[in-house]
């Protein structure tokens, strides 16, 4: 049995009187691709925000840990610490640094894995120079991974939409995560780009051994690449299992198509 890298137990999130997440359980094992799906407004992004520290969950436990390390409860810690532990995310509405180049965007991702401080910056000593070189080298290789190396010095805001999404993945990879959280990575992409993206995500899993949790609406992509799928509706987990199990589940069909009980 592989130990889970992310284990979420009975997580609840209330906004005033509204319960956006209601006792959701989810786990991701090492080297797995897990998808979180559900109709619009089901609470998928809220779930992401809860486990990455942007929101503090009302109750429940979020436990993470690199496989091999002792797991750690991370409820309510700051987002930058979550990233430092090793969970990196992308955003549904792309949040790149628009007036920085593609390479610089990825370089920002390496921030939490590098150390040089004020003294290093001013004295420009050997240690800082070596580190700076490593940052550039590593960032460039990540750009190569997402096939953006020719745009290295292009401003992020000038890149086309699909490339911006891939750049965001490269930036998240730069934080050296063990779990990558992708929030609708294929949104707004054409079928060809979606296939490329799928290959990229599978490659990341196979080459780097990084587990992946993704939110996605593109069912073809979700069904073909996920190991397991969790389905949210109105903040509740209504189904989970392999793609076959989930696609045959009447509760899921009902949530998506809104069929009455009589028709099922």
């Amino acid at each position: 049995m592989v130990s889970p890298v992310l284990n979420v137990q009975d997580i609840c999130m209330d906004f005033g009187g509204i319960r956006a997440l209601d006792e959701v359980n989810l786990d991701v094992k090492a080297g797995e691709i897990v998808a979180l799906i559900g109709p619009n407004g089901a609470g998928k992004t809220t779930f992401f925000n809860c486990i990455t520290g942007i929101y503090k969950p009302t109750s429940g436990d979020v436990v993470v840990g690199r496989s091999g390390d002792s797991p750690r409860r991370i409820n309510g810690i700051k987002p930058n610490l979550v990233t430092e532990i090793g969970m990196a995310r992308t955003f549904q509405n792309i949040r790149l640094f628009p007036s920085m180049t593609a390479l610089e965007n990825v370089m920002i991702g390496t921030h939490c894995r590098t150390k040089s401080g004020i003294w290093g910056a001013i004295s420009h000593n050997r240690k800082a120079r070596v580190e700076e070189q490593e940052i550039i080298e590593r960032s460039y290789h990540l750009l190569e991974l997402v096939h953006l190396e020719e745009y290295a010095n292009e401003l992020a805001c000038n890149l086309p939409y699909g490339k911006q999404r891939r750049l965001e993945i490269a930036r998240a990879m730069a934080t050296d995560p063990f779990l990558l959280l992708l929030d609708e990575p294929a949104a707004g992409m054409n079928p060809h780009e979606t296939i490329e993206l799928k290959e990229l995500v599978l490659g990341i899993r196979d080459v780097y051994g990084i587990s992946i949790l993704l939110i996605e609406h593109d069912m073809k992509m979700v069904m073909s690449m996920s190991d397991r799928i969790f389905v949210l509706d109105y903040g509740r987990l209504i189904s989970h299992g392999t793609p076959q199990e989930v696609s045959g589940d009447p509760a899921v069909i009902k949530a998506y198509l809104g069929e009455g009980d009589d028709d099922v």
């Binding site: 949040r95 640094f97 920002i108």
Partner: peptide, 17 residues
């Protein structure tokens, strides 16, 4: 670089560690 990133997008900045 971290300052520039902070100027551009605070949330993304934090999410990047």
């Amino acid at each position: 670089r971290a300052w520039l990133a902070l100027r551009e997008d605070e949330i993304a900045c934090q999410a990047m560690g």
